[in-house]
């Protein structure tokens, strides 16, 4: 899957979880950029991403994640395997 396709799908998931009409994501977007990105929503978001891309993140991978770019890279690496 191409990076822009992943971003497109992530934008839909983010919009749905954070209750916004639309969200524009870049590789540098992080929790600090979205007011609704609190701890409970973070958990829901990760769960929705795992379901949508049919993958499961490791705890270590989640804790290393700082930006949306890290999430994209992880999705790509897990989709290849």
């Amino acid at each position: 899957m191409e990076e822009n396709q992943i971003i497109e799908r992530l934008e839909k998931i983010f919009s749905s979880v954070f209750g916004k009409e639309s969200i524009v994501l870049t590789r540098t977007t992080s929790a600090g950029d979205i007011a609704e990105w609190n701890s409970l929503n973070h958990m829901i978001l990760i769960s929705e991403v795992e379901t949508a891309f049919n993958l499961k993140f490791k705890l270590k991978e989640l804790n290393k994640m700082q930006h949306v770019g890290d999430l994209i890279d992880l999705i790509i690496s897990k989709s290849i395997v």
């Binding site: 929790a31 973070h42 993140f57 705890l59 989640l62 804790n63």
Partner: peptide, 13 residues
């Protein structure tokens, strides 16, 4: 590396 992120990753896992 806020505690809220570490906590929600653990809970989510």
């Amino acid at each position: 590396n806020p505690s809220s992120k570490i906590k929600s990753n653990l809970l989510g896992y």
